[in-house]
Design a binder for these strands. Structure first.
Lengths: 330, 330
DNA sequence: GATTTTTTGTTAAACGTTTACTTTATAAGT
DNA sequence: ACTTATAAAGTAAACGTTTAACAAAAAATC
């Protein structure tokens, strides 16, 4: 026979006190004399009692659960963020519910509906939507949200992201200063805030150096490795001696092509890529990289959503971190 | 002014029916005439009503949340499993709560306590505990649990794991057949079921070929890259011409050493490693690998926990998948 | 036309907590 | 000794659903 899980009334009965006292002992919401507290704690232990979280959540309206809505947790970048969010939240007594949207609008909407309907106390989201207007209907007014990595246009409120503009510009300017003039660019798809900045960085570096934009050196990739390979091929044919690749997955494909045709990075061509957290093997190569402080971003986002939950009056905060440019490999 | 979120009574009032009818319309738990259903649905839409999940969970005891307790979600292997579990669960209407234990016993216990106290309907766990007895106290009898990847000794119940014994043995036997006799082995730490099998595979292959075990060729690593590097160094000094590395992280370090001293894999030395999902770059190298069907394992575990929840009477199932040996690189 | 069955809805009692309000006992102030 | 303040704990009303038990109306059966 499997005995029923003990409830607060059982504890109260055993300890000879009221359920209110038991509750207060557990939550520390009221002073309870040393003596009775001891009794209650003993009963709790004896009955192996733990409160019914559902009942508590129902009553208090707090669930101590935060939703993380990510476009692709298979991507090392978002996985790293996931890990760090989980870690930070657990420090604050929160747990993490994960929704993987796979860059799909419907999945994102479903996730938002779900999380805001009473599952989570707050949400950290790297949205696939480019405009806030599209997601706003699914976020109840005042619901704690922190946008991470990407910032949908028109959004006002808490957000944490990394500005890559300066780092990209520095990297390209650096190439120019070293005498490279035919600098290719493999762009990533989308008009996400995170990718638009890289565009600006590349363009502005050239502009400031007085180098005209050459459309033949700008390739539009689709964020997949194969596409990086193909774009690199075209750029090599177009005679570039340096290239900036806006996405690490494409960089893998691009470097694969360079490898195939015997071009050595750092000698025959310069490569600047977003730094990835996946291919440690690149360490040895002379790839220049732009690193986003993913962990710190995640940590801040987690802290921010907790603060928002605990103090809804707080004004919205926009936190911007800076990417760093590494010239000497990864 | 921010108006209150609508509740079931508001919907009932607006539609001119009882709250019971509204509930039945939402859950399809009883036939409701076309006419009244329409009215209710209209009211739901008009009020933008969605049920309070906490209240529902509290009442029904179901939360539609599954816990995933993993030792290291920063590890690509467990991240991949996480991704696939999330995907499969969402198909069945469940969401995922993640607990990252970082191979820490206390964190695992805390996670189990939490998840079983009313957060989750079931758990999928890759436990750090080697003996089930150590974790059993934190799992209420009858609580739906599926052990994944690792099988604590003494556990009887649902589990999904990959047997690497045959593949490891095949790989080592293959090396022997090709004439390699000084085959090193870099072991991973711990007595986890998953690592013990690799041990057995290596030993048995040698035994069957009549090759005596040479303790000098067996290195005990600590599952970190640095350790792989050091062990490899010793093995090279000991004059191995082939090596089996029980852990992909250590393999990275080991190969790094081989690289450093100019040894080419496939020519100067043969390397068999657990196949990793991280270093795609290895593809080009002549590394032989042993692949675990992580995704399938995850999918099955997710299905299994759902089935267990929906049918608690089901007998426990132990699902064993087979790792595959790839001779021709990754 | 009376009885039974089916269809469609309603009523009200849970579920296990938290917490505002009330009570009792004890100490302090006059 | 009487009131007043303080300390410690108890009472009971929520919270928003689901669902068993019940009721009324309509349809079917005799």
């Amino acid at each position: 026979m499997q005995r029923m899980k003990a409830k607060i009334t059982d504890v109260a009965k055993m300890a000879g006190v009221s359920i209110a006292t038991v509750s207060h002992v557990m939550n520390g919401t009221r002073y309870v004399s040393e003596n009775t507290r001891k009794k209650v704690e003993k009963a709790i232990k004896a009955l192996d009692y733990s409160p019914n979280i559902s009942a508590r959540s129902f009553k208090t309206g707090r669930r101590n659960l935060i939703g993380y809505v990510a476009p692709d947790i298979g991507n090392r970048f978002f996985a790293l963020i996931l890990e760090e969010i989980e870690d930070t939240l657990s420090l604050h007594g929160y747990n993490l519910v994960v929704v993987n949207t796979r860059e799909d609008y419907d999945r994102e909407i479903a996730g938002l509906k779900l999380l805001t309907s009473g599952i989570a106390d707050g949400i950290i989201i790297a949205s696939t939507f480019q405009n806030y207007a599209e997601m706003q209907p699914y976020l109840p007014a005042g619901f704690p949200v922190v946008q991470i990595d990407r910032l949908p246009a028109g959004y006002v409120g808490d957000s944490v992201r990394v500005s890559t503009f300066a780092a990209v510009k520095a990297a390209v300017s650096d190439l120019i200063a070293e005498g490279y003039t035919r600098i290719g660019y493999i762009a990533s798809i989308g008009r996400l805030s995170s990718t638009v900045e890289r565009d600006r960085g590349y363009r502005q570096a050239l502009e400031e150096a007085g180098i005209p934009l050459d459309p033949d050196l700008i390739m539009q990739g689709d964020a997949r490795s194969r596409s990086g390979y193909d774009c690199m091929k075209k750029l090599v044919d177009a005679g570039v001696n340096a290239v900036f690749i806006s996405n690490s997955v494409m960089a893998s494909g691009a470097m694969s092509y360079l490898d195939n045709c015997g071009m050595q990075i750092g000698r025959d061509i310069q490569v600047v890529s977003m730094r990835d957290y996946e291919w440690h093997r690149f360490q040895k190569e002379a790839v220049r990289t732009i690193e986003q402080p993913a962990k710190e971003m995640a940590r801040l986002a987690a802290q921010q959503v907790v603060e928002r939950i605990e103090n809804p009056q707080l004004p919205g905060r926009e936190t911007i971190l800076r990417a760093t440019y590494h010239k000497d490999g990864m």
